[in-house]
Write a protein that binds this DNA or RNA. Structure first.
Lengths: 333, 333
DNA sequence: ACGTGTGCTGCAAAGGATTGCAGTGATCAA
DNA sequence: TTGATCACTGCAATCCTTTGCAGCACACGT
């Protein structure tokens, strides 16, 4: 039903080859001819069939994006960034949601791999081994995960946690609780490292309360243990957990930030709207998506690796809001 | 790099045609041959090239999904539903975000239309006229929008508002404020209709306070006008607006639900976590996505229209939470 | 022994676009 | 006038699959 290159050729009175060249290599065809072709093309509303082109050029002009769970407010932001950057380069995006399931993730990747030029895997749940395997077969860029030899854009988690700790220490806190995320999580590991290093440097106490689900419920579950540590501040694995903490603390009549300061990391939209508004470390989520696309597009240009940078690290920014305040007993220690 | 049908054919000692048939029409090839082909195929990890197949069959096995804004928590749920249903039928999904821009929306549709079997447009911002035009060229299913002659899955907004009003009236409220959404919005129009009809039937007063952005900020902006109406309850255009109301009311020292009950519609994840938790009408968002895919797949099967239902209406469910309570003066009217 | 039917399989075209190579015609120099 | 150069343009092959049609071999009935 849509116009083909032949229709345009016939209407312009030239051969299909000329149409193809007029559109993609404008300088090699006679300006008069080109004008005629152009006119014919947009009188028919012609646009080349990407699939057909892909067959011969080996490039589809499509990329794939896999995320663990769109219901987690972190990921839509990343998707949006990928989207925005992709349309700028006239690239279409396949989206897949693995539902936090590593096996499903692999399946989606396999299904997508054949019809895209490259893949962006955001916070992949698969093992390093599997990811390396995938990276050998396809062009891959990781977001929020680092694997030997695979291009990636990551957040500086260590620095982010340091920002949080610096902030709390400046407010006079000397004993800080930590609500950890899933043990298997790459970012949990790195956040923890940054945290330990920061508290060590400041010579303040750390009270870890274990691993929890990275959800609102996880935060609710962790709250009582946090209270039991007698810390005056708590840093949560992420904002969702922090908001869960806020809810449970309120229910128990513990005042934030007067009795306890709460700090998260991510800065999802919800954090601004929490009560009290959540102090957190803003991670440039959309930017990570944009950057991943740029990395991927770069990979596709020069086939020779090494010519372009394969790593990008994004920095967080402390957003001081109402959930953090001076330590309760800092006036009379 | 990936194996082609010819590689499989060579390995199995048959012609490409036989391979093709062995995989898609198993009953027409000799069982022995088929076994040999199968073995060859998965020893090479062969999967047919969708683009090449699409070229000849006219079916790509891909669908497109366009949403106005992924940052709005309503849409990721829909996307997730579409996704989930699509993978079940081995269909891949192109996702595009129009950023609330009608012109961009059309552009994305045009770009996508050529490489998909059909399109799902969620809450499209374009005019009826444009949508009809698109529907003529491509298979289209709308979500959350009704246009003459175009298949669609919608929510029963009228009924949803009635649920909200019934609830408030039962709690003794006699004067209800309404914070409207964007004038151009299809769902705003229908929610308003349902609302007017419900309050009319119950013979209670309605105090509309105008149109606001469908955002947290919109809700903040509307709050003071709501208070000025002296209504004892307010229904917001959606949950985001309701949560904005909650925030501003709290800031002004107005207690919810003691002084004022607040009800939203959508039931986004955030609503459960609001303080107080928001009473709202849950719209089956994921389900709408699943259903849209089914409708679209149905359209692709039988080309003859009329054989399948072109419309689906989904019903909301009242989620009573802490933001609504008995009317303040209902004990002594 | 011959014709017919049956069950598989292969040939070749088609689908839309790109691209190396060859051909056309014009222009210019000798 | 002829030969060479140049700027364009067209032919045809190619990418990977699918599918209508034809062909082959075999078995069976007569």
């Amino acid at each position: 039903m849509p116009a083909t290159i032949r229709d345009v050729a016939r209407l312009a009175g030239v051969s299909p080859s000329t149409v193809s060249r007029a559109l993609s290599l404008p300088h090699v065809v006679n300006p008069t001819t080109r004008a005629r072709v152009m006119a014919a093309a947009d009188s028919l509303g012609y646009a080349p069939n990407k699939a057909a082109r892909g067959l011969i050029t080996g490039r589809t002009g499509n990329i794939g994006l896999v995320v663990p769970d769109l219901a987690n407010p972190f990921f839509p932001s990343v998707v949006k960034g990928v989207q925005a950057r992709a349309v700028e380069s006239d690239v279409a995006v396949f989206l897949a949601d693995s539902d936090e399931d590593a096996a499903a993730e692999i399946g989606l990747v396999r299904a997508l791999a054949k019809q895209v030029d490259g893949l962006i895997l955001c916070s992949p749940r698969s093992s390093d081994h599997e990811l390396i395997g995938i990276a050998q077969e396809t062009n891959v860029v990781l977001i929020n995960r680092l694997v030997e030899g695979v291009p990636a854009v990551t957040f500086d988690n260590e620095e982010g946690m340091r920002l949080a700790v610096d902030h709390l220490v400046a407010l006079g806190h000397r004993r800080i609780a930590w609500v950890g995320g899933p043990k298997a999580s790459w970012s949990n590991r790195h956040r923890k490292i940054g945290l330990y290093s920061a508290v060590h440097d400041h010579r303040v106490e750390l009270a870890p309360v274990g691993s929890f689900q990275p959800t609102y419920e996880g935060g609710m579950a962790a709250a009582d243990q946090v209270v039991a540590t007698r810390a005056t501040a708590v840093i949560a694995y992420n904002d969702l957990v922090a908001i869960g903490l806020l809810a449970r603390l309120h229910a128990r009549g513990i005042s934030v930030p007067d009795d306890l300061s709460v700090v998260g990391i991510d800065d999802i939209a919800m954090s601004r709207m929490a009560r009290p508004a959540l102090t957190t470390v803003r991670l440039p989520k959309q930017k990570s998506g944009r950057l991943a696309v740029e990395l991927l597009l770069g990979l596709l240009e020069d086939r020779d690796p090494g010519s372009i940078s394969l790593r990008a690290t994004l920095h967080g920014e402390l957003m001081v809001r109402a959930s953090s305040g001076v330590a309760p007993d800092s006036a009379h220690p």
